[in-house]
Each structure stands twice: as structure tokens, then as C-alpha cells.
């Protein structure tokens, strides 16, 4: 299946886990990233849980590359916006009327660590899980199969749509449409670029609908799946345990049991 997702096929124990087990693992990291009170603990979730997991799944280089690529704009914006504008006493650097403050930098570091854990946890899930298996696992647990169809189809057709957008861009340029130059010119180019893409995609919908109807998509009754997912009792136990830990973390944070 060709999709624009991050999935990397590897022969690892992590890859062979049930998709819901991976989801529980990632959910645990996300909840920990949101609830742990100390920045260092949050960083520890990345260094001591997510990175070893990525290594276990044999996707560490891609994991590090993606997470760094995603986090640096956040780190930059946060350092500037929180560093200069958060209230604080310890001035590190004075630039005219603006001052860089230690408290702001600490706040920026805290947010950056949490965002790093959230985004990289999602990235890790995508690196080690085939989207169709994830949707299958959720469908087996009661998610309407239409939702699975919508998400997987969208993932499949995105590359084709991006290609079609490029083709339209090229052909309109060949006909003399100005897509460069000042802002007004670029804005005027929008409709001739966007409208053909939308119209052509609406006009092909009937074929898709007929294809689905012809294959019994709307029929009632049970379905059989081409792929089967392997689940084990320890994995199911782990998922329940993660759920309990997640709830405890949220409760502890809300009740103020955890302090720095």
C-alpha cells in the first residue's frame, strides 16, 4: 500500500505488537508529557522511554530526524516569545526596551520538552504502525468502518492529488498564468489553480461511489478481513495497566499530588 505516511517496515518485536498496544504505549507517553510536573522528568520520557523504544523498533535515525525537524520551529518561537515576554526578574540580556529573562527561558524549555514528547510520540507510532492495521484494530473495537475507509482512502489519494495540483500549476503557467511576482498577481493565480482541482475531483466521485456499492460496502452484516491481527493476554493486560496509569497521572496532576 503506497501512502504518504511515515511507516517504516522493519522486522522488530515492537512492529509485531498489536496496534492498540502501541497506541497505549504512545498514549502513556503523551499523558506523561502533559502531567509530569518537572521539565527534567518530561525530558526523561523522551530520552529513557521514547528513544529506547525507537531503537527497539529499529527506527531510531528516522525518529530522531523527524522529531528534531518538528521541534526546532517550536523551540525557536518559544525561546523568543517566552524568553522576552514572560514576566521575570533575572535579566540575561537587554535589547533596547526588551529583555531576555531566565524565567522565560525556563518556561520555553518546559513547553519545548512537552511538545517534543507529544509530537515525537505520535511520530513514533506512525513509524512503527501500518495505518491500515491501526484502523483495522479500531474497527474491530467498534469504530464505524466508514471512518476507516475515509482515513485510509485519504492517505492513499493524497500523493495523486498533490501530483495533480502540480500538473495544473504547470499547465496554467504554460498558458501564461502568472504565479510569481507581487502578492496581487499570486493571489489572482489562486482560483485558476484551485478550481480545476476541486471540480475534477467532484466529477469523479460517482465512479468511486458505484465501485463501493458494487462491492457491497453499504450492505449490513458481518465482514471478514484479509489481514488478521495477533493479540496476546499480556498485551491486553498491559493496555489495561496503561489506562490505569494514565488516569492516575491525570488525577495526581489535577489534585496537586505531584509537586516539583
Amino acid at each position: 500500500m503506497s501512502t504518504p505516511t511515515l511507516y517504516l517496515p522493519r522486522d522488530s518485536r515492537l512492529h509485531h505488537l498489536h496496534p492498540l498496544t502501541k497506541l497505549a504505549l504512545i498514549g502513556l507517553a503523551i499523558v506523561a508529557g502533559a502531567t509530569l510536573p518537572v521539565t527534567l522528568w518530561v525530558i526523561a520520557v523522551y530520552l529513557l522511554i521514547l528513544m529506547p523504544l525507537a531503537a527497539w523498533g529499529k527506527v531510531l535515525p528516522a525518529f530522531l530526524r523527524s522529531s528534531l525537524l518538528l521541534i526546532w520551529p517550536f523551540a525557536l518561537s518559544l525561546t523568543l516569545i517566552q524568553g522576552f515576554f514572560a514576566p521575570g526578574e533575572h535579566i540575561l540580556l537587554q535589547l533596547g526596551p526588551l529583555s531576555l529573562k531566565l524565567e522565560g527561558i525556563q518556561l520555553a524549555a518546559d513547553y519545548t520538552a512537552r511538545i517534543l514528547v507529544w509530537l515525537s510520540a505520535v511520530i513514533l507510532l506512525m513509524l512503527i504502525t501500518r495505518p491500515d492495521q491501526l484502523m483495522l484494530a479500531l474497527t474491530e473495537r467498534g469504530l464505524p468502518r466508514q471512518i476507516g475507509y475515509i482515513i485510509l482512502t485519504a492517505l492513499q489519494i493524497i500523493p495523486r492529488f498533490q501530483q495533480r495540483a502540480e500538473t495544473i500549476l504547470d499547465s496554467q503557467r504554460a498558458r501564461g498564468l502568472e504565479t510569481e511576482g507581487n502578492l496581487v498577481k499570486r493571489l489572482r493565480a489562486l482560483v485558476p489553480l484551485v478550481a480545476p482541482l476541486i471540480l475534477s475531483s467532484i466529477l469523479e466521485l460517482d465512479e468511486r461511489a458505484i465501485a463501493l456499492e458494487a462491492r457491497g460496502f453499504t450492505r449490513a452484516g458481518p465482514r471478514t478481513s484479509l489481514t488478521t491481527l495477533k493479540d496476546t493476554a499480556p498485551q491486553s493486560a498491559f493496555r489495561w495497566l496503561s489506562l490505569i496509569v494514565m488516569l492516575l497521572l491525570i488525577l495526581a496532576r489535577a489534585a496537586g499530588w505531584m509537586t516539583a
Binding site: Q146, Y149, I150, I151, T153, A154, I157, I158, R160, F161, Q162, R164, A165, L197, I198, S201, I202, L205, D206, R208, A209, L212, F217
Partner: peptide, 15 residues
């Protein structure tokens, strides 16, 4: 028809 429209619309968002 709506079920086939939605993934196309999502791909339009992204493209």
C-alpha cells in the same frame, strides 16, 4: 456519495 466525497475533500485540504 458523501462517504466517497469526504476522503477526496481531505486530500484537497492537504494538496
Amino acid at each position: 456519495l458523501t462517504i466517497v466525497l469526504i476522503p477526496v475533500a481531505i486530500a484537497l485540504n492537504i494538496a
